[in-house]
Design a protein around this nucleic acid. Structure first.
Length: 488
RNA sequence: GCCGGCUUAGCUCAGUUGGUUAGAGCGCUAGAUUGUGGAUCUAGAGGUCCCCGGUUCGAGCCCGGGAGCUGGUACCA
């Protein structure tokens, strides 16, 4: 190795926010995508895949900015010099598809989509730059019935993802209510409204105290950095805080309380009526208060929502290998976006949708050990001149549907056992001279063996007792292995 | 983007006022055991002290710049 070659040797590293995904994560992702997709399918949504790239102007406000073309999204210039970008969600591509195929598709148009989306943002724990979303939307239906249905679908999707009743909650709010709120608080300036909404959205994070600061002069964070506030008067802040904390024990009472706060404005009254109708349908669908709550502190992203908005949270506590609880934000969200298709077509096309962030959940499940992946049954190779026989044994297992592999390395028996241990194999098949003579195989149940050996401290006893190990006739091997791996 | 912290073995970290050959635990490899994954014991391998420059007789340690990681915050359509 010359100096020059050493200098050119690349460093083995990968860009942050794009984690390598292990077998356990992939298994969790597949299971979540499958089960959530089948909920969408059952509710009458059709699958649609629009591919990863869109023209940048179709995605939204990201016009080609020659200084920072990649802020927020991953964009590049096609060979015709036009800017294209990886989708950052499934909703914008859907709006483009609907507008492009308007004359050909049935209305209402209902489709679901599952696949990766990309965001060029600062990654963090459970925040990736590539992640999988499972999305369902219906286009062409105005009115709270469609929103209530979306909320019900969201609840069912959460249950399909493994959340029992009480382990998740869908929190619902309305942009109409928030519009009414801005009016009654006297927040008129567009820029200031944005600042106020963002501050309100932080209620769950910073509480009354922090939000008060953000609405007023501003707030200093733990590192000493200062966030400029909205600069509101105390009486304005009071109105806003009263609204945000207006959540009551159930939906009906929350509505009543909100009616008091913002019901006198036109937008507010519309929002109150809307939530009332949604509540009626949720009750008819049998969705209890513990699954769907009305929560005035839910805001969601600012840009395209126009009506009811909602957010799904998994309440179960996941702990990492050290036993520390892992915090991650919402795992899904959605709402009404009546303007998104109209952006392309000029005529109104109301729409509402919901999306689950699968990657975040899958990562938590894998990190908590909840999602485990077994290795294959390993057929040990003790006599090199019997490879054909070992290959047959492994093949017999596979033909019976058991994941199995013949050891292909060059090491002795002990390393083969270690290999099986590392692969998390449920069992190994051992055939040496003794077994061959007697026409039997030795099977070692590695999990039972490990359990049986837990109290053993003496290596001789461990070696002579061989916990979890037994002989059986070759003809019974497949059946015995199937019992061990839990297939019968 | 802004603010803070951190960077020494695969991992977690120690390293004295700036002084010879940079350490520990865990992990890894091998042996004790030629047919057995754990535990125990023994041995071994493993280092660009993040990078570049400066100060100094001498830098893992001091100074300047950069990069990366990480936490907070902002943004998140």
């Amino acid at each position: 190795m010359t100096n020059d070659e050493q200098q050119r040797r690349p460093e083995a590293r990968k860009p942050r926010g794009f984690p390598d995904r292990t077998a356990a994560v992939i298994a969790a992702e597949r299971r979540l995508v499958d089960s959530i997709s089948s909920v969408y399918q059952r509710w009458g949504f059709d699958a649609l895949d629009t591919g990863p790239f869109e023209y940048v102007d179709a995605l939204g406000k990201f016009l080609p900015d020659t200084d920072r073309p990649n802020s927020g999204v991953f964009a590049l210039q096609d060979d015709d010099e036009q800017w294209i970008a990886l989708r950052y969600d499934h909703t914008a591509p859907l709006a483009r598809y609907v507008a492009e195929n308007w004359e050909r598709i049935p209305k209402p148009f209902r489709r679901y989509s599952a696949g990766p989306v990309w965001r060029n943002e600062k990654p963090g724990p459970f925040r990736f730059r590539e992640f999988i979303q499972c999305d369902a939307d219906s286009v062409g239906v105005a009115g709270p019935a469609a929103d209530a249905e979306m909320i019900a679908v969201a609840a069912e999707a959460m249950e399909a993802a493994g959340a029992a009743r009480g382990e998740y909650v869908i929190r619902v709010n309305s942009r109409q209510l928030l519009d009414g709120l801005m009016e009654s608080a006297g927040v008129i300036d567009g820029g200031q409204r944005g600042t106020v909404l963002r501050a309100l959205d932080k209620f769950d994070k910073f509480g009354v105290e922090g939000v008060t600061l953000l609405l007023g002069k501003g707030r200093k964070d733990e590192s000493g950095d200062f966030t400029q506030g909205a600069g509101l008067q105390a009486n304005q802040i009071d109105v806003l805080l009263e609204f945000v904390t207006a959540r009551k024990v159930n939906r009906a009472e929350t509505i009543a309380s909100l009616a008091n706060t913002v019901g006198m404005t036109r937008a507010g009254a519309t929002g109150v009526t809307e939530l009332g109708e949604i509540d009626a349908i949720l009750n008819a669908l049998g969705l209890p208060e513990e699954s769907v709550a009305f929560d005035p502190s839910i805001v969601r992203g600012l840009e395209y929502y126009t009506g009811p908005v909602f957010e799904a949270e998994f309440l179960r506590e996941f702990r990492d290998a050290e036993g520390n609880p892992m915090r991650f934000g919402s795992v899904g969200g959605g709402g009404r976006y009546d303007g998104l298709v109209a952006r392309f077509r000029g005529e109104p096309a109301p729409a509402t949708g919901f999306s689950v962030g699968v990657s975040r959940l899958a990562a938590a499940m894998a990190a908590s050990g909840e999602e485990k992946v077994d290795g294959p049954v390993l057929v040990l190779v003790l006599d090199k001149d019997q490879l054909a026989d070992y290959a047959t044994l492994a093949s017999d297992l596979r033909r019976a549907g058991v994941r199995a592999e013949m050891y292909l390395g060059s090491s002795g028996m002990k390393p083969q056992m270690k290999y099986a241990d590392r692969r998390n194999s449920p069992a190994v098949v051992i055939v040496g001279g003794n077994e061959r003579e007697k026409g039997v195989v030795t099977i070692k149940d590695l999990k039972a063996g490990a359990a049986a050996a837990k109290g053993m401290t003496d290596n001789d006893a461990w070696r002579t007792e061989r916990p979890g190990q037994f002989e059986c006739p070759r003809a019974e091997m497949v059946a015995r292995i199937k019992t061990i791996v839990g297939q019968s």
